[in-house]
Deep mutational scan, measured.
Amino acid sequence: GAYRMKIYDRDELRGQMSELTDDCISVQDRFHLTEIHSLNVLEGSWILYEMPNYRGRQYLLRPGEYRRFLDWGAPNAKVGSLRRVMD
């Protein structure tokens, strides 16, 4: 299947937008971000990790809009890595 997600540095799907279609071992290295404040999962399911290298707390992201970090259940906006959930 296809995988696509848009990430934003501000809440409510605002601010600088970056797009992912594959795994990202370090959000900071690739996008120069340490925080993601909202996101829109367009295709596929993903796991968001608090730390790089797929470590730390993890949150399942199904397709849909997440307008603030509380929407995916996190206590803050800190994001380290993102990985696709393969079928």
Rank of each mutant, 00 (worst) to 15 (best):
G1R: 06
G1P: 04
A2V: 11
A2F: 15
A2L: 11
Y3K: 15
Y3A: 07
Y3P: 09
R4F: 15
R4L: 08
R4H: 10
M5P: 03
M5I: 14
K6M: 14
K6C: 04
I7K: 00
I7Q: 01
I7W: 09
I7S: 02
Y8F: 05
Y8V: 02
Y8M: 03
D9R: 12
D9V: 09
R10Q: 10
R10G: 10
R10I: 04
R10E: 13
D11K: 15
E12Q: 08
E12G: 05
E12R: 07
L13G: 15
L13F: 12
L13I: 15
L13Q: 15
L13P: 03
G15W: 02
G15E: 12
G15N: 15
G15K: 04
Q16G: 05
Q16C: 11
Q16Y: 07
Q16S: 08
M17H: 12
M17Q: 06
S18F: 09
S18D: 06
S18T: 08
S18P: 14
E19N: 14
E19Q: 14
E19Y: 13
E19S: 12
L20F: 12
T21P: 14
T21G: 08
D22A: 09
D22S: 08
D22K: 11
D23C: 15
D23S: 12
C24D: 08
C24S: 14
I25L: 10
I25P: 14
I25F: 09
S26A: 10
S26T: 15
V27P: 03
V27K: 01
Q28A: 09
Q28K: 15
D29G: 11
D29I: 04
D29Q: 15
R30H: 14
F31K: 15
F31S: 13
F31H: 11
F31L: 10
H32W: 03
H32P: 12
L33D: 13
L33K: 14
L33Y: 06
E35C: 06
E35Y: 07
E35M: 05
I36L: 05
I36P: 03
I36Y: 04
H37E: 10
S38H: 13
S38N: 02
L39C: 08
N40L: 10
N40Y: 12
N40P: 01
N40V: 11
N40H: 08
V41N: 12
V41R: 01
V41I: 11
V41D: 00
L42G: 15
L42Y: 03
E43G: 07
E43K: 08
G44H: 04
G44Y: 02
S45G: 09
S45M: 10
S45H: 14
S45D: 14
W46Y: 11
W46D: 01
I47S: 02
I47N: 04
I47Q: 04
I47G: 01
L48S: 00
L48C: 05
Y49A: 02
E50R: 02
E50G: 03
E50F: 01
E50H: 02
M51T: 05
M51C: 08
M51E: 09
M51G: 09
M51H: 09
P52T: 07
P52M: 05
N53P: 00
N53L: 06
N53S: 07
N53I: 03
N53W: 07
Y54A: 02
Y54G: 02
R55L: 07
R55Q: 15
R55N: 06
R55V: 06
G56I: 03
G56F: 01
G56K: 00
R57K: 10
R57H: 04
R57L: 06
Q58M: 04
Q58S: 08
Q58A: 04
Q58L: 04
Q58P: 04
Q58V: 03
Y59H: 03
L60S: 09
L60D: 10
L60R: 12
L61V: 11
L61C: 05
R62P: 07
R62D: 06
R62G: 10
P63G: 05
G64N: 12
G64S: 03
E65C: 03
E65Y: 03
E65G: 03
Y66P: 01
Y66F: 15
R67H: 06
R68H: 10
R68I: 13
R68W: 06
R68A: 11
R68T: 12
F69W: 06
F69R: 13
F69N: 11
F69C: 08
F69K: 13
L70G: 09
L70A: 14
D71C: 10
D71K: 10
D71L: 07
D71G: 10
D71R: 04
W72A: 02
W72M: 01
W72T: 01
G73S: 07
G73V: 04
G73E: 11
G73Y: 03
A74M: 06
A74S: 07
A77H: 11
A77W: 15
K78I: 12
V79F: 14
V79H: 03
V79I: 11
V79L: 08
G80V: 01
G80Q: 05
G80R: 05
S81C: 08
S81T: 02
L82A: 07
L82M: 15
L82R: 00
R83F: 06
R83I: 06
R84E: 00
R84Y: 15
R84C: 13
R84G: 04
V85F: 13
V85N: 04
V85T: 10
M86N: 15
M86Q: 14
M86S: 14
M86T: 07
D87E: 12
D87V: 04
D87F: 15
D87A: 05
D87M: 12
